[in-house]
Amino acid sequence: MRNLQAVDREHIVESEAPARSSSLIRLIVQWTLGILVAFALGTWLVWWGAHLHRTFAMDDIRSACQRVMPETFERCVDTVIIQRGGARR
């Protein structure tokens, strides 16, 4: 004897509806999390790029002042930083 069961058309439609809505919700959650992760990663990369830029600019200022005015090194660094718009130290 076969293990088959007759199923009405109404039962098929009713059982597919929750599966579709749950897969839609899952898709929306995945997209939302993906967008949040991409936004967080992009924000961190922008911050890190700005940090590297500021660090390299400070290194350039310090090395130039060390070459040009070794006796008044700190004064030169402070003057150049103020002239460039007051970078934080």
Rank of each mutant, 00 (worst) to 15 (best):
R2G: 00
N3V: 00
N3G: 04
N3A: 01
Q5P: 00
A6C: 03
A6T: 07
V7L: 11
D8P: 01
R9D: 01
H11K: 14
V13Q: 06
E14V: 06
E16Y: 02
A17D: 03
P18W: 07
P18L: 10
S23G: 00
S23T: 14
L24W: 03
L24V: 10
R26K: 15
R26Y: 12
I28A: 13
V29S: 13
Q30V: 15
T32Q: 13
L33A: 13
I35D: 06
I35R: 12
L36Q: 06
L36D: 05
V37F: 10
A38V: 12
F39V: 14
A40Q: 06
A40H: 03
L41F: 07
G42F: 01
G42P: 00
T43P: 00
T43F: 04
W44Q: 14
L45V: 14
L45P: 00
W47G: 00
A50Q: 10
H53D: 04
F56C: 01
A57K: 10
A57G: 00
M58D: 10
D59K: 11
D60F: 02
I61A: 09
A64E: 11
Q66C: 01
Q66W: 06
R67W: 02
R67V: 05
P70L: 12
T72P: 00
T72F: 03
E74N: 14
C76K: 02
C76I: 03
D78G: 05
T79K: 03
T79R: 03
I82F: 02
R84G: 13
R84Y: 05
A87H: 10
R88T: 12
R88M: 08
R89F: 06
R89H: 11
R89Q: 13
